[in-house]
C-alpha cells in the first residue's frame, strides 16, 4: 500500500482555505465594534446589491450581507442592529404557576386577587403575563390543559433549559484535536461542519484552537475528513494522527 499517494497534494489544494474565505474570517474578527480599521476594510471591498427594495440597501462584503437604510451614511452591521433594537425586540410572555406568582408577585397585577383566582382552578392554574417593554399588556389566569407536564405546549423545546444529552456512548473511536496542529480562528472548518455543534473555538488570534466536547461528539468522522490539514497532525483518532486502514475507509485511498 502506498502511504503517500500522488493525488494527495491536489486534494490538499482543494481543501486549503480559499484566500477569499481567509479574508472574510479576518474581516469578521476585525469588524468587532472596537476595531475601526477592520470595519473600514470591509467597506473598501464592499459593494451594494442591486436590490429592488426602496426602503433598504444591501451591502455585500465577502459573505457578509448588511442591511441598512439608504443613504444612511455609516453602515449598520447586523450586530449593531441587534444591539440597537434590544428595546424593541420580542419578549416571550411569562407563564407562571401559583408558587411562582406568590414568590415573584409580578408588577402590575393584584397578586392577592390573582392568587385566589388561581386557587379556585387548582394546581393546573397558570398566569399569563404579556409585557411590551415595562407595560403590562395582558394578564390572564387559565387552566393549563396539559396532562403530561414534562412536555411543553406544542412539544416546544426551550433551548436554554434543555440539558444536552450525553451521547458519548454512540462513538466507537475517541476524537481529540491537537492544539499544536490546529489553525485556530484562521480556519474553523471543523466547527462549521460538525453536525452536533460539538466543536468550539477556544481563544482568539494566534494561539487559539478548537476543542471537541466529549459529551456531544458522536464520532461521525466528518471533522476528521473535512479538516483542511487533512487531519495530518490536527485531529487525533484514538490518540493516533495517522491510520492507513481508517484513511482508506474514509478517503477511499
Amino acid at each position: 500500500m502506498k502511504l503517500l499517494p500522488r493525488s494527495r497534494p491536489r486534494r490538499r489544494d482543494y481543501l486549503r482555505i480559499p484566500s477569499a474565505r481567509k479574508r472574510w474570517i479576518r474581516a469578521m474578527n476585525d469588524s468587532k465594534p472596537n476595531t475601526q480599521s477592520g470595519s473600514q476594510k470591509i467597506q473598501d471591498r464592499a459593494h451594494l446589491l442591486s436590490a429592488r427594495s426602496r426602503h433598504k440597501e444591501y451591502l455585500v462584503s465577502g459573505r457578509l450581507v448588511t442591511i441598512r437604510d439608504p443613504e444612511a451614511g455609516p453602515e449598520t452591521t447586523r450586530s449593531d442592529a441587534a444591539n440597537a433594537g434590544s428595546k424593541s425586540h420580542m419578549v416571550a410572555p411569562k407563564t407562571l404557576t401559583v408558587a411562582e406568582v406568590a414568590r415573584e408577585s409580578p408588577d402590575g397585577i393584584d397578586t392577592q386577587k390573582v392568587l385566589s383566582e388561581m386557587a379556585d382552578i387548582g394546581p393546573q392554574a397558570r398566569l399569563l403575563l404579556v409585557r411590551s417593554g415595562e407595560k403590562l399588556m395582558r394578564a390572564e389566569v387559565f387552566e393549563d390543559p396539559r396532562i403530561c407536564m414534562d412536555i411543553q405546549r406544542g412539544a416546544v423545546v426551550e433551548n436554554l433549559t434543555e440539558k444536552p444529552a450525553d451521547v458519548s456512548g454512540w462513538r466507537t473511536h475517541e476524537f481529540f484535536i491537537d492544539t499544536k496542529g490546529c489553525l485556530g480562528d484562521e480556519c474553523g472548518r471543523c466547527a462549521i461542519v460538525c453536525p452536533e455543534n460539538a466543536i468550539h473555538l477556544m481563544g482568539r488570534g494566534p494561539g487559539s484552537f478548537h476543542e471537541i466536547d466529549p459529551l456531544a461528539c458522536k464520532g461521525c468522522f466528518i471533522c476528521w475528513v473535512e479538516c483542511v490539514r487533512t487531519a495530518a497532525d490536527c485531529i487525533l483518532v484514538d490518540g493516533k494522527t495517522f491510520d492507513p486502514t481508517m484513511r482508506s475507509k474514509h478517503f477511499g485511498e
Partner: peptide, 11 residues
Amino acid sequence: APLNPLFAPEK
C-alpha cells in the same frame, strides 16, 4: 399573544 415566540432572543 404568542406563548413561545420564535424571535424572543432571551428565550
